Amino acid sequence: FKEKSRGVLREWYAHNPYPSPREKRELAEATGLTTTQVSNWFKNRRQRDR
C-alpha cells in the first residue's frame, strides 16, 4: 500500500469504518487498489481497533 492510498483510506475510516460496496468501489478507483484490497484493509483496521 502506498502512503497516499493509506492516507485516503485512513481519512475515510475516521468518518465511516463500514463503507458500502459502492463506496468501496469508489475508494478502489481513488487509491488504485482492488475492491478486495480495500475491503481487507477496512476489515483488518476494524480488527486492530478492537
Rank of each mutant, 00 (worst) to 15 (best):
Y18C: 11
E11I: 01
K24E: 15
R48M: 08
E23T: 04
R6F: 07
K24N: 12
G7P: 07
Q47G: 12
K2D: 12
S20N: 14
S5L: 08
G32L: 05
H15D: 14
L33P: 00
R46A: 08
R22P: 14
W12S: 06
L33V: 06
K43A: 14
H15C: 12
Y13G: 01
E29Y: 03
S39F: 03
F1I: 07
R50A: 08
R46G: 03
E29K: 04
E3S: 09
Q37S: 07
R45F: 06
N44G: 08
L27G: 02
R10K: 10
Q37F: 10
K4Q: 10
D49G: 04
G32Y: 05
A14G: 12
S20D: 12
Q47R: 15
E26W: 06
R22F: 15
L27F: 01
R25T: 15
S20H: 02
T35I: 14
A14D: 13
S20K: 07
E11W: 00
N16M: 00
R50E: 11
E26Q: 04
D49T: 05
K4P: 04
E26F: 02
K2S: 14
L33K: 09
R22D: 13
E11T: 09
V38Q: 01
N40H: 10
N40I: 12
K43H: 10
Q47S: 10
D49H: 04
S5W: 08
R6V: 15
P17H: 05
P19L: 04
N16V: 01
Q37M: 07
N40Y: 08
S39T: 12
K24R: 12
K2P: 06
F42H: 01
Q37T: 08
G7S: 14
N16I: 03
P19R: 01
K43D: 12
V38L: 03
T34W: 00
V38C: 01
G32R: 07
E23R: 03
V38H: 02
D49F: 04
T35C: 13
F42L: 04
D49N: 05
N40M: 11
N16W: 00
R10S: 12
K43M: 07
R22G: 14
R6I: 15
K43V: 09
P19S: 00
L33Y: 06
P21I: 09
G32T: 04
S20G: 10
K4L: 12
P17Q: 13
A28W: 04
P19C: 01
N44H: 13
E23C: 03
V38S: 00
R22Q: 11
S39E: 14
Q47A: 05
L27S: 01
S20C: 15
P19D: 01
V8L: 11
S39K: 08
P21M: 14
E3Q: 04
W41I: 06
P19N: 00
E11P: 00
L27D: 07
G7R: 11
A30E: 10
P21W: 02
Y13P: 00
R45Q: 11
R50D: 11
K4M: 09
E23F: 01
E29L: 02
A30L: 10
G32I: 00
E23H: 00
G32S: 04
D49A: 04
R45L: 06
L9F: 04
E23P: 00
Y18V: 10
V8D: 11
F1R: 00
P21L: 15
H15G: 12
R10A: 12
P19H: 01
T36Q: 14
E3G: 07
H15R: 10
